[in-house]
């Protein structure tokens, strides 16, 4: 049974998750006509930048985050930005979009200079997220849990992060039992996605190196969060 405190705790995270989304006028550009690889790459870079801004605003509302050491806050954001962004875009990608939009988006991503060896695991991840049919609370909590992962590089006080992540895992476990009573493994399946995200994170780092080789330009915020000079 979810206690009243846990319900309130979850509502804070869910409310922040819903309030901080990529602005519609930015997201709308994904459906614009131009299709050249350069335009697609620029568009995806703009989306990624907006996604990072949204992520930071969401993270600031995760209970306890702003009480952490400042450097650890930066380390958590840098360490989780790629994974949390993929988790959010997977949720957007698999959500009910007007017909045809998913195909347009997929086509745009396929034609933006991203290597095939990266796109396959990325679209597989989008598919597995879609198949899970997570409810909104589960999506919000899983995103917060991804960000509040103690063993990110340069995090000094891992116990403090763990103490903040624990209650989120407890509530998520109860939610899974509540919303998926016939699937006792559902909670484990959600956590399995976090492992898949780490693999995506690894691919992304490799892709970044290849992009830097042929001199792709990123926005200052992306350079900072991806540690690209």
């Amino acid at each position: 049974v979810i206690t009243k405190d846990q319900q309130a705790f979850m509502n804070v995270i869910l409310d922040a998750y819903n309030r901080h989304q990529i602005p519609p006028d930015v997201a709308k550009k994904l459906l614009q006509e131009q299709y050249s690889a350069e335009e697609n790459f620029l568009l995806l870079t703009e989306m990624a930048t907006s996604q990072v801004q949204v992520l930071v605003e969401f993270t600031k509302h995760i209970p306890g985050f702003l009480s952490l050491d400042h450097e650890d806050q930066i380390a958590l954001l840098k360490g989780s930005a790629v994974e949390a962004s993929f988790l959010r875009s997977a949720q957007v990608f698999s959500s009910k979009m007007p017909n045809g939009h998913t195909e347009v988006l997929e086509e745009r991503i396929r034609k933006s200079g991203i290597s095939e060896e990266f796109m396959t695991p990325m679209f597989n991840f989008y598919k597995t997220i879609g198949e899970l049919h997570m409810v909104e609370e589960e999506q919000a909590l899983l995103t917060a849990i991804t960000i509040m992962t103690p063993d990110r590089p340069y995090v000094k006080d891992q116990q403090a992060v763990e103490r903040l992540q624990e209650p989120m895992l407890d509530v998520l476990r109860k939610l899974c039992a509540l919303h998926h009573p016939h699937e006792p493994q559902y909670f484990a399946r959600l956590l399995g996605r976090l492992t898949e995200l780490r693999t995506l994170n690894h691919y992304h780092a490799e892709m970044l190196t290849s992009w830097r080789m042929n001199d792709h330009k990123f926005t200052p915020l992306l350079c900072e969060i991806w540690d690209v000079q």
Partner: peptide, 16 residues
């Protein structure tokens, strides 16, 4: 040292 954009975003008041 170039001011960190991330720090600026983090220090900006969380819009309620």
């Amino acid at each position: 040292e170039e001011p960190s954009l991330l720090k600026k975003l983090l220090l900006a008041p969380a819009n309620s």
